[in-house]
């Protein structure tokens, strides 16, 4: 468990909740830079399948991650509400997460997060809001995978 998660456990964190396929996920709202519509991307050679390409965000070039492919859930095809959540990791690396729709915001107590098995590294746990189960996305691991992954031919 990282320092950040330990700190998060003690106090409530505002999370943004979004849907990918039929499942809901959340990330801390402070890591979100902006939410924008999905636009045409530039395909990148030798990219992992979950990278849909690069976009231009006011002069900064970002890669988009299709969370449906990344999280291995069936995507909702032809969904007009697909949006890109632009996030910035604690190391300052930015990327866009392609999600099916943004639902709402929620205050989540760190202690409410129930851990899941360790081998599921992209989620740090599950949390219940009402009777919905929401996965807490581990943003750092997503972003690091993007940057450190050795592009294979």
């Amino acid at each position: 468990m990282t320092e950040e998660e330990k700190a998060a456990e003690s106090k409530a964190v505002k999370m943004i909740v979004f849907a990918v396929g039929d499942q809901e996920y959340c990330i801390p709202i402070l890591s979100v830079r902006e939410i924008r519509g999905f636009e045409k991307t530039t395909v990148l050679p030798f990219a992992p399948p979950y990278v849909c390409g690069a976009i231009n965000l006011r002069g900064i070039i970002l890669t988009l991650i299709d969370l449906a492919i990344y999280l291995n859930v069936p995507p909702q095809l032809d969904n007009p509400r697909r949006v890109v959540v632009i996030v910035e990791s604690t190391q300052g690396i930015m990327c866009g997460l392609l999600v099916d729709r943004v639902i709402d915001m929620a205050d989540i107590q760190g202690s409410d997060i129930q851990s899941v098995s360790d081998d599921c590294s992209s989620l740090s746990g599950l949390v219940m809001i009402g009777n919905r189960m929401i996965g807490v996305l581990r943003l750092e691991s997503v972003v690091n995978q993007l940057v450190e992954g050795v592009a294979s031919e």
Partner: peptide
Amino acid sequence: IKSMEKNYRRIPGV
């Protein structure tokens, strides 16, 4: 010229 490596990785041939 914009760097790709800042927010992504190195791409062979690019």
